[in-house]
Amino acid sequence: MSQSDTELPESVSTSSPPLSIRQAVAGDYQRIVDLDAETSSVSKPDYWREIFALYVSGEDAQRYLLVADLAGKTVGFALGEVRAWEFGSPPCGWVFGLGVTAEVREHRVGSALVQDMFDRFRRDGVSSVRTNVSRRDTLNLSFFRSLGMTAGPYVQLEYNLDEEELSSS
């Protein structure tokens, strides 16, 4: 997830124009690619082409690419889906992509996107939502915790393949 997702939901500007959240359509492709490039500093057009094929044009009803529009401009996105039986887990929602342009930080855009995703997961009948955040990314960790998320029952483990190469050489 990207640095610009990291607004802490502290204050809401009362003069802000209304924010709307909707499922993305094919015409949002370039704006999402640009937003993601802006917030993550890496442009990934191929990745987003695949995401749009699966999450926008695809038939699976439990996959969501949400966009946030503010004053006629798309200012954020959230990517999520219901996954079942990965690592033995019963169906649960996953939020695995979030980006909000720096211009609208602290306007609760990230919160609105994630809460809308929660609503969709709830309608899909799941009772828990998970995400992954780097433990060094304290702003994003704080953001998700401020929405009520806590440490989950799984521990993520990693193996460094380069280390294996070093020790065997």
Partner: peptide, 11 residues
Amino acid sequence: ILTEGDLEPLT
């Protein structure tokens, strides 16, 4: 409350 991280928004 402290372990489930349920879906109800806290705000």
